[in-house]
Computed example of a mutant assay.
Amino acid sequence: MSLEKTIMEDIKTAMKAKDKVALESLRAVKTALSYAKTEAQVDELSEADEISILQKQVKMRKEAAEQFTSQGRDDMAEKELQQVAVIEKFLPQQLSEEELAAEITAIIQQEGASGMKDMGKVVGIANKNLAGRAEGKAIAGEVKKQLNA
């Protein structure tokens, strides 16, 4: 079942359960997916595109939560974080720090990277290989850490 169909089913479930947070989150994701399909002029998005859209939705909400927290609006921050939890259910399992470090080490060895001059190449390959399983920020941080060592 495609992600869009799964989300539609979950919207129905959230409506029946009167779960406002889930409903709002799922509708936002559905809208983002529909917009991306319209923009790309396609009937179906690839799985990689869907994951990318979900990651953007999660990132937007995490950033909003940080903003609300810095402004002392913990109630609004909590709402954003609850939406993050709903959306993350549709993303692949995230890598732990140890798993990410091992993956980055393997890529560095495979590419023969030796210093910071190779960071762009390693980050590019890592982002492609680990799409959906790790945030770009975490990947770049780990690559930098390992290439500086």
Rank of each mutant, 00 (worst) to 15 (best):
M1P: 05
M1E: 03
S2K: 09
L3P: 05
T6H: 09
I7Y: 00
I7W: 01
I7D: 08
M8K: 12
E9A: 12
D10G: 04
D10F: 03
K16R: 13
K20I: 15
V21N: 05
V21K: 08
A22R: 02
E24Q: 11
L26F: 09
R27M: 08
V29Y: 04
V29T: 03
A32V: 15
Y35R: 09
Y35D: 11
A36T: 15
E39C: 14
E39M: 15
A40S: 13
Q41Y: 08
Q41T: 15
V42H: 01
V42D: 06
D43N: 14
E44Y: 06
A48E: 09
D49L: 12
D49Y: 06
E50L: 08
S52M: 07
I53G: 02
I53C: 02
L54M: 07
L54Q: 01
Q55S: 06
K59A: 15
K62G: 01
K62I: 12
E63H: 06
F68G: 03
F68M: 12
F68E: 05
T69Q: 07
S70L: 14
S70E: 05
G72K: 13
G72E: 02
D75R: 12
D75A: 14
M76I: 15
M76K: 06
M76P: 01
M76S: 09
A77H: 01
E78M: 11
E78K: 14
E78I: 12
K79R: 15
K79Q: 11
Q82C: 07
Q82V: 03
Q83P: 06
V86L: 03
I87A: 05
E88V: 15
F90T: 10
L91T: 11
P92R: 03
P92I: 12
Q93W: 00
Q93Y: 00
L95V: 11
L95F: 01
S96W: 03
S96E: 01
S96P: 07
E97G: 00
E97V: 14
E99M: 10
L100P: 01
A101G: 04
A106I: 13
I107R: 11
I108C: 10
I108K: 03
I108D: 02
Q109A: 13
Q110E: 15
Q110I: 06
E111S: 01
G112T: 15
G112P: 09
G112S: 13
A113E: 02
S114Y: 10
G115A: 13
D118M: 09
M119L: 08
G120V: 11
G120L: 09
K121H: 11
K121Q: 12
V122C: 02
G124M: 10
G124E: 06
I125N: 02
A126D: 08
N127E: 08
N127G: 05
N127M: 12
N129T: 13
N129R: 10
G132W: 02
A134H: 08
A138I: 14
I139K: 00
I139Q: 03
G141I: 14
K145E: 00
K145Y: 04
K145F: 02
L147R: 06
N148S: 14
N148F: 07
